[in-house]
């Protein structure tokens, strides 16, 4: 549906504080699309416990058979890398880790 509701003069901008009083805990949802594939992060749901989180994840993210398996993880338990730091920089100057770095004569054949 559509969302672009123009701002009215004097409209008070809602300020997000992140404060949560009564909401159920948040769970991150991972769905395996079919056997042989990894579970992939698709979004989140709120639920009181893991069992209902799985039910909610099923109803929210697999209504068209997008999954054969679902994982839910309490969002608070996920730790993440510091993406603003040079965490992955050491790997940027090591092209020799890729097979395409090496030039092999055609005569050698499959290698």
């Amino acid at each position: 549906m559509t969302y672009e509701i123009p701002e009215l003069e004097g409209e008070e901008r809602a300020v997000a504080t992140g404060e949560a009083v009564g909401e159920w805990p948040l769970w991150e949802v991972f769905v395996r699309a079919k056997r042989g594939l990894n579970h992939v992060h698709v979004g989140s749901v709120h639920a009181a416990d893991a069992e209902t989180a799985i039910q909610n994840a099923r109803d929210t993210y697999t209504r068209r058979s997008e999954g054969v398996s679902v994982w839910v993880v309490p969002s608070a338990l996920i730790h993440a890398s510091d993406d603003s730091a040079a965490m992955f920089e050491p790997f940027e100057d090591k092209p020799y880790r890729h097979p395409t770095f090496y030039e092999i004569p055609d005569e050698v054949g499959q290698l």
């Binding site: 504080t17 992140g18 948040l26 969002s75 608070a76 996920i78 993440a80 510091d82």
Partner: peptide, 18 residues
């Protein structure tokens, strides 16, 4: 703002300041 959400969404918690 997200710093205050420490118990809700772990991967949004930042232990560094930008």
């Amino acid at each position: 703002v997200k710093l205050r959400r420490i118990h809700t969404r772990g991967y949004l918690n930042l232990d560094h300041q930008f």
